[in-house]
Amino acid sequence: MAEWDIRKLHILRTLREEGTVTATAEALRMTPSAVSQQLTNLSRQLGVPLLEAHGRRVRLTDAARLVLRHAEAVFEQLERADAALAAYTQGEAGEVRVGAFATAVPALVVPAVRALRAAHPGVTVRVRETEAAEAYDLLAAGEVDLALSLAAHAPTTQDPRFDLHPLLADPLDVALPPDHPLADADPLHLRDLAAEPWIFGGSGPWSDITRTACESAGFTPHQAHSATGWTAILAMVEAGMGVALVPRLAAVHREGVTMRELTADCPVRHILTAVRRGASETPAVSRVLEALRTAAGAD
């Protein structure tokens, strides 16, 4: 296979446009001897004569014109590559893999993706739903580029592998049956529900968050039922089997459930974004982080 040299092909192409070696040298800010030497080397690499004498000048051979016809497609593709690379470096193109826990996907990631499609359609986001605690393993392994997780499951800020940034403080509301004596209480404090039967997971992040919130309000919750899915939890609340804390991002309207904001001692769960250390400077990742912050601010 012949040895193709893009720079030398560019010189040959310029000679075709300029007509003389001297004009080509001026256009490319080279010396005439350097132009001649580069074209002689290209002729040797391709194994065909590229120039022929024409009076006191030179002109392209038929072989040179054949080479340039094929080279035009190469130059066109390189222009496309330059444009794509410029878009990538400016954050207008690229793929970002996002790992996010279940309630963050519809509430934060989906609005961010919609905004990106409108403002930066060249940025592609691939979403992977994951447990909050698993996100950092995926991030460290390079399987996702950006993770959304709960602060309760984040490594310390001293962990050299990750850059962590607060995204949102998500309030926890209480779910009550509509006929509950405290459904219309104003104000309603978390400690007012100390004697209630509670519904939350037997273990995992939501169990920890519920227990921590109740203990901060001065009581230990009595766990009457265990469930991890919001559909199951709200169905039991609707049936009058207990009360539950529900993050506002996860709240889904249900006819038989009253959602109440808590006063004064309102607990929150903190949501973070995480990327591998230094990756937040990657333009496409930066675009996604910006879109997530905008989505969080809109909630």
Results as ranks from 00 to 15, higher is better:
L172D: 06
G229F: 08
L249K: 06
A104W: 09
A213N: 06
H270K: 07
A183P: 10
I209C: 00
E255T: 01
C214Q: 08
F219I: 11
Y136F: 15
E134Q: 12
R277F: 02
T220H: 12
S207D: 12
I271Y: 00
L167R: 07
H70M: 05
G229V: 02
V288N: 15
K8E: 03
E26P: 01
R161W: 03
V21M: 02
R276Q: 09
V67R: 06
D184T: 13
A291R: 05
L190S: 13
L60C: 08
F101D: 06
L164H: 02
L164W: 01
R7Q: 11
E18L: 00
P267Q: 07
A217F: 05
S149P: 07
E290Q: 13
A87F: 13
C266M: 12
A93T: 10
A102T: 13
L292Y: 14
V275E: 04
T124K: 14
W198G: 09
A213C: 02
A119I: 09
G218M: 10
A239G: 07
A152V: 12
R128S: 07
E143N: 11
P178F: 04
A133Y: 06
D163P: 01
E290A: 15
A81V: 14
C266V: 07
A194V: 06
G94Y: 10
D208N: 02
Y88T: 14
L15R: 00
P160Q: 03
D184Q: 14
V109W: 11
T124E: 15
D159L: 11
L289E: 09
P197S: 11
V96F: 11
V67Y: 03
L150E: 08
M241T: 03
A27G: 00
P49D: 10
L245V: 08
H225F: 07
A183Q: 07
W198S: 09
E92N: 11
A274S: 04
E290C: 11
E238A: 15
A118Y: 03
R293W: 05
E18Y: 01
A194E: 10
A152E: 09
A119H: 01
A151F: 05
F219K: 04
T282I: 09
W206G: 08
R44V: 13
L262Q: 01
T263A: 04
A154T: 05
A2I: 02
A151V: 08
V243Q: 02
S226W: 04
P283M: 11
A53S: 15
G201D: 13
P171Y: 03
L272Y: 03
L234E: 14
A195D: 14
V67K: 03
S286A: 15
A264M: 01
D145I: 08
A169K: 07
H120V: 13
V275N: 04
Q90G: 15
R161P: 04
V48T: 11
R128K: 07
E95Y: 00
E255C: 00
A27N: 01
L50R: 01
R13W: 03
D145C: 09
A53E: 14
C214D: 04
A115R: 09
G256M: 01
A133V: 14
R126T: 14
V252K: 08
A185R: 15
A194D: 06
H153D: 08
F219R: 02
A244M: 06
D82N: 06
E26L: 04
E196T: 06
V123E: 12
W4R: 06
V243L: 06
H222K: 15
E261N: 00
H180M: 07
L182F: 10
L289T: 10
Q45H: 10
A264F: 04
R260V: 00
T40R: 14
E290D: 12
H165S: 10
Y88C: 06
